[in-house]
């Protein structure tokens, strides 16, 4: 079993998928010759040729639109938006076309595409290179939304996403690409190779969509997180000394509601964390579901820790980012409620 960074794991997933199925084609801005701005597709064009891994113009709508046409006629396109923040011109295609093709044709045509995009902050990218737009996708029936938090999951979930018969939005937390990050931004970066989560299964080993992963068992409070915030939540638990149970959702749609309800019914408390802005974020959906499914088990109001309702700042990135102290404070408050 090889140890990989998240970038290497994503590249490996592409490699495996392309080797086993010549319907899989990979394209996007700088994806071919250059190998992707974050290097997630490096070497694929050389190995599989320019007809299967290639560069596109800077035309996000065109990229997703052509992918939909290819998918409708039997290919399996896996495309990259260079940053999730660049997705907006393609949103029309994602929402009005990709998500709806199956329904509007009563199953006559389907749209098995994957749209990968680096998401989240932590790299001083400011408001146009740091956003977390997952709620814009989970709000749309017909889409699936995946957010891996480590190399092992990134590979397995990407393989499953490429196999999936429906359009999948695959959000890759860019701060995790090349190293572990738990929100303690002032500490040195820790290599992925030091984590067991960098042990990536060789070959074709998909991880099914729709299953969350328990990252830490605990008795006091359930913490629901995904992507980068899984690690931040674990740090907050360690810092606060509160016995938190940390669930890594991994896929937001479909959502593993069973694991969530079992945990909250056990702990009686719940804190939801995400990096995206608070209002109408995916956390609101989680809170609604938790109170609906677990109301009589709750000992305290469900709390949310999220980005502020501001544009993603540049200089004040770490004031915006919901780091371990903010989560620890929420855990404390929920325990004292």
């Amino acid at each position: 079993m090889a140890r990989m960074t998240m970038v290497e794991a994503i590249r490996d997933a592409h490699d495996v998928a392309m080797a086993r199925d010549d319907r899989v084609i990979v394209f996007g801005e700088d994806v071919g010759y250059f190998g992707g701005v974050f290097r997630c597709t490096a070497g694929l064009q050389k190995k599989y040729g320019k007809s299967r891994c290639f560069d596109t113009p800077i035309s996000e709508s065109g990229i997703v639109g052509t992918a939909i046409g290819m998918a409708a006629y039997g290919l399996r396109p896996c495309v990259e938006m260079q940053f999730a923040d660049y997705m907006y011109p393609a949103y029309d295609q994602i929402v009005s076309e990709a998500a709806r093709l199956r329904y509007r044709s009563a199953g006559e045509f389907t749209c098995p595409i994957v749209v990968r995009m680096p998401t989240g902050g932590g790299i001083f990218g400011g408001q146009t290179h740091s956003q977390s737009p997952e709620a814009l996708f989970t709000h749309v029936a017909g889409l699936k939304t995946v957010v891996p938090s480590n190399p092992r999951d990134a590979k397995g979930l990407l393989l499953a996403a490429i196999d999936d018969p429906d359009p999948v939005i695959f959000l890759e937390p860019k701060r995790l690409y090349n190293g572990q990050f738990d929100g303690h931004y002032d500490k040195p970066i820790v290599s992925w190779k030091k984590s067991e989560l960098s042990e990536v299964d060789e070959g074709y080993a998909p991880i099914p969509l729709g299953r969350a992963k328990l990252r830490r068992e605990g008795r006091d409070v359930t913490i629901l997180a995904y992507g980068t915030m899984v690690h931040v939540a674990l740090a907050a638990v360690a810092d606060s000394g509160i016995d938190g149970e940390v669930i890594d959702l991994r896929t937001l749609m479909p959502l593993d509601i069973d694991m969530i309800t079992a945990s909250v019914r056990k702990t009686g408390r719940c804190v939801v964390v995400h990096e995206a802005t608070l209002t109408s974020g995916f956390g609101a959906e989680l809170v609604a579901l938790v109170q609906q499914e677990c109301f009589w088990h709750l000992e305290a109001p469900v709390a949310r820790v999220a980005g502020w309702d501001t544009p993603y700042p540049h200089a004040q990135e770490w004031h915006y980012f919901p780091g371990p102290p903010r989560i620890a404070k929420a855990l404390q408050a929920v325990m004292e409620a």
Binding site: G65, I68, G69, M70, A71, A72, Y73, Q93, E97
Partner: peptide, 15 residues
């Protein structure tokens, strides 16, 4: 919105 999709269909034909 159908225009890029049409190009994608043509891409699949060429492929």
């Amino acid at each position: 919105a159908q225009v890029p999709i049409g190009a994608g269909l043509a891409f699949a034909d060429r492929y």
